[in-house]
Write a protein that binds this DNA or RNA. Structure first.
Length: 584
RNA sequence: GCAUCCGUAGCUCAGCUGGAUAGAGCGUCAGACUCCGACUCUGAAGGCCGUGUGUUCGAAUCACAUCGGAUGCACCA
């Protein structure tokens, strides 16, 4: 099913055409003035210029044409030339039924098949996840699910940092501590590496990192280890695999707790094998030049307003750098998936880097010309002081600690609940805590910094994840009470109240949110829509005593509406990767 | 210094491909429960949309300037 404004635009465009006007004037938008109408078309203003005719007259012609076609309850022309449209109740109900029967529940589908790769997450192996990884995970996951809901083939790629100096540091430190390990021996012959565990890893990396700053010899050893690993020294590869095993399991557990999962667990190491090809292509196309000892690609253009530095492909010591792996990764993705779009959900401070990468990729023809490369930068999560969120002692907070505190706060909040059975409290608290964090993040436009405030996010009042989950539980209560489920049929009512119309309209407008949210890759549209729907339901719920209604026809019409509301609300939550709870 | 992004209600933020009276949440104030979960709902007050100029029939939205803030500007990722 198409978005409602697209459906109405088609109808109104035809009316413009039938009246002898350009059909492109018939664009319909959601009304700015809900007190006057549900939808509006301002095409008559542009038409006035085109036809040298008063907009009021043009709109009048079209409105006349639109009346009586059964779609609109009213099609009115106001003042200079606004065309105000309101759907008939019959048509509104028909749309409800269309949404209910739609396998995609009203999410507008892509017109042609497309493959999208979303690069998000980006954690480093051997370092624990911290809150810096939170936004990429949350936003990336939501955009991935939104793209998938619109019928596109989507791959979420975690893009692990698994091939850089951090691994060399860990290897070098392990070697100092365990010189007797066979994997460090020159005559290593494939013996198994002793098992590591997460606690050991999370202790060893910061230790080694600190040491490398104070001890030049150790730093050199770590750099050497990195180099040897990258050139394939078998013993180092074996340790690396063990580090990967432990670290990946830990990452999966942490992301799992957040409800975030990746389709592809590729890392920089997987791109490594495409590096020779990258170098070959850049050389063949004559793009590679020498600058201050490094191999670079010039990407500046004449209309750059600011100086655009060249991209370093090989450092002066001939080693690779992040641009090298990012470009190699593009080759890998092109080969394996031939994508239509590659999106990067990365901290916005990396904007310049990706501008450069994309230019090199275009110049070198690493992807199809029509492949969209887009940088979806996100802002910083700040504390109440307006600066980057920190722990009380000023350090970077671990993601698991943040989740622990969110769950604890949620559990505290739910402790007096009489609705959740004791056995489900823990899982419910996890879901409520995570929902609060995710919604609190996603409600803000992704490119902007925002203030993290757990108390606010966890409040039952206002635009919060908690409120949305609570709304679902109220619908659950009703459905349970009347013995219905979310597939209860949509019965027609004799008459509709404003609250019912507003609820149906909120359901109908969900399609607009999916459409705009996808176009702008902005999950905040979905959040806003979810809140509008929950609020419309609250009003409806407050006005009507559904379970106790004695008029059988009204009662079943209401139950059907509750059921559809639940389904659409759950769809929103699913896209936001917020897991619902049965009760709370 | 140059560039990018941001500046909207007391606070936190939407809206920005130009359209009617600029929206929401919190907070404040005033109301509403014999009832499906009141952790709810209704209403009110609160804004020269940073400032100025321009484009336009029409500007929070576009352009230019200016002030303020954040960020970035090759061998870290």
């Amino acid at each position: 099913m198409k978005a409602i404004t697209d459906i109405l635009t088609q109808i109104v465009s035809r009316a413009f055409e039938d009246c002898g006007y350009d059909p492109s004037l018939g664009t319909v938008t959601v009304s700015d003035r809900m007190d006057l109408c549900q939808f509006q078309c301002n095409g008559a203003f542009a038409g006035a210029k085109l036809y040298k005719k008063a907009p009021f007259m043009i709109a009048g012609d079209v409105a006349e044409r639109l009346r009586g076609n059964g779609v609109f309850k009213s099609a009115e022309v106001v003042k200079p030339g606004f065309l105000n449209l309101t759907l008939s109740d019959e048509r509104l109900l028909a749309f409800m039924r269309e949404i209910a029967a739609d396998p995609n529940l009203g999410v507008p589908q892509a017109e042609k098949p497309e493959t999208v790769i979303i690069d998000y997450g980006g954690p480093n192996v051997a370092k624990p996840l911290h809150i810096g990884h939170l936004r990429s995970a949350i936003i990336g996951e939501a955009i991935k699910r939104l793209a998938r809901a619109t019928g596109r083939t989507v791959y979420g790629d975690i893009h692990l940092g698994d091939w850089g100096l951090q691994i060399g540091l860990v290897i070098a430190e392990l070697k100092e501590r365990h010189p007797d390990w066979r994997c460090f021996a020159d005559d290593y012959a494939g013996e198994p590496v002793p098992e590591l565990d997460v606690d050991a890893l999370s202790e060893i990396y910061p230790f080694a990192s600190k040491k490398s700053k104070e001890d030049a010899a150790f730093k050199a050893a770590a750099q050497a280890a990195t180099g040897e690993l990258q050139s394939g020294r078998p013993g180092y590869i074996a340790v690396w695999k063990e580090i990967m095993r432990v670290s990946t399991a830990d990452l999966k557990a942490n992301y799992g707790r957040l409800g975030v999962d990746f389709d592809l667990w590729y890392g920089e190491s997987d791109a490594d094998k495409y590096e020779p090809e990258l170098m070959r292509v850049l050389t063949e196309k004559g793009l590679l030049t020498e600058s201050e000892g490094a191999k670079v690609v010039e990407v500046a253009t004449d209309d750059d307003k600011a100086p655009m530095p060249p991209v370093i492909i090989k450092k002066s010591d001939n080693s690779s750098i992040y641009a090298t792996t990012d470009l190699s990764t593009i080759i890998q993705r092109q080969k394996d998936y031939n994508p239509d779009k590659i999106w990067y959900v990365v901290d916005k401070r990396q904007s310049l880097h990706f501008t450069q990468i994309f230019r090199v990729a275009r110049k070198a023809g690493l992807v199809r010309d029509d492949c969209e490369l887009e940088f979806l930068g996100f802002g910083t999560m700040n504390g109440s002081d307006g600066h980057a969120y920190k722990t009380r002692d000023g350090g970077v907070m671990r993601l698991s600690d943040l989740l622990d505190s969110a769950e604890a706060a949620a559990a505290e909040k739910l402790s007096s609940s009489e609705f959740t059975e004791a056995g489900r409290r823990g899982e419910t608290a996890r879901r409520v805590g995570v929902a609060a964090i995710k919604f609190g993040d996603l409600i803000n436009h992704r490119s902007k910094d925002y203030v993290f405030d757990m108390d606010k996010f966890l409040s039952f009042e206002g635009k919060t994840g908690t409120y949305l989950l609570y709304s679902v539980t109220r619908i659950n209560s009703i459905l349970k009470k009347v013995g219905a489920d979310e597939n209860a049929p949509l019965a027609a009512a004799e008459v509709y109240t404003d609250a019912e119309r507003e609820l149906m309209l909120a359901i109908l407008l969900a399609g607009e949110a999916y459409k705009h949210g996808f176009e702008e890759k902005a999950p905040n549209y979905i959040c806003e829509s979810a809140y509008m729907l929950a609020a419309a339901f609250s009003k409806f719920y407050h006005d009507n005593h559904i379970a106790g209604e004695t008029d059988e026809a009204r009662r079943s019409a209401w139950i059907g509406l509750c059921a559809l509301t639940k389904r659409v609300l759950l769809k929103h939550l699913d896209i936001l990767s917020i897991e619902p709870v049965e009760s709370m």
